[in-house]
């Protein structure tokens, strides 16, 4: 019995290790080769070099893509979190006929295949003369990210004692004061987590941005451009940096969501 358990445990651990290896090996490889002086990714490794990082540092196109990504990411994070909060609070606060339909609709965007989403966005935005602008990327990413923000904030609000809101009203707080002094403080960790996660999603998103960004390409779209033109280890350097920034945002969000009760420690 005990032996069997040990074997099963060992196999499960091996399985997890293989999964992690499968996921992280390409990223790790990209990271290693970004610091390798050779032009092509091959073994044995050449010398240690920060040459590729220096090249992207000096490339104005990379900077422009990065700037677009940051502008889009920040704006999308704020817009998506606002929309997500609105949706989550509506769900918490009100009951109305068709509410489940409304929620299903609000949760829908991430389930739509991105190519279809990108095409639809392109068709719509070009009809209203917004395609190929930074705003178009913001709109498209806003639609895609809001459900994530809503899911995170909704989860937090579902942990709230519904009496808290009524208690605030009962003690003289009108609906706006209650939102300001009770609902938002309670949801604050989730609101920040939603900001970071939506920013990370927007940072990484490629397909829809590729359809709608036109000349205002975000970094992932730029990377594809590089790859189509030439195979350069600069891709590895950019990829490593993008991975680090996304991971930072996700980890920040996870820390915020970890133990929301310990506000002051």
């Amino acid at each position: 019995m005990g032996n069997e358990n040990r074997i099963v445990n060992g196999l499960l651990k091996l399985h997890i290790a293989l999964c992690l290896l499968f996921i992280f090996a390409p990223i790790a490889g990209s990271f290693v080769f970004s610091l390798n002086s050779d032009r092509f990714p091959s073994l044995p490794l050449g010398e240690f070099s920060t040459e590729w990082y220096r090249l992207i540092w000096e490339d104005p196109l990379v900077w422009q893509g990065f700037a677009n990504t940051v502008v889009v990411g920040l704006t999308v994070a704020v817009i998506a979190t606002l929309l997500g909060f609105g949706g989550a609070y509506t769900d918490f606060r009100y009951n109305f006929t068709g509410k489940s339909f409304y929620l299903a609709l609000a949760m829908l965007p991430p389930t739509i295949p991105v190519v279809i989403m990108g095409l639809a966005m392109l068709a719509f935005l070009s009809r209203v003369n917004l395609s190929g602008t930074t705003i178009s990327v913001i709109i498209a990413h806003g639609v895609m990210c809001s459900p994530f923000a809503m899911a995170i904030i909704r989860l937090r609000l579902s942990q709230m004692d519904p009496d808290l809101e009524a208690a605030s009203w009962n003690m003289g707080g009108n609906q706006w004061q209650t939102l300001r002094y009770v609902i938002i403080p309670f949801a604050k960790p989730a609101i920040f987590a939603a900001l970071f996660i939506t920013m990370a999603v927007s940072f990484d998103e490629f397909a829809v941005a590729w359809f709608v960004s036109g000349l205002n390409e975000t970094l992932p779209v730029k990377i594809l451009g590089f790859l189509q033109g030439q195979v350069s280890p600069r891709i590895n350097a950019i990829g490593s940096l993008a991975f680090l920034s996304s991971m930072t945002l996700i980890i920040l969000a996870q820390l915020l969501l970890r133990s929301p009760e310990d506000k002051k420690s």
Binding site: D163, L164, A167
Partner: peptide, 11 residues
């Protein structure tokens, strides 16, 4: 009102 759940603000 004093609530059954007390409804004190945890934050």
């Amino acid at each position: 009102m004093v609530w059954q759940s007390l409804a004190l603000f945890p934050f």
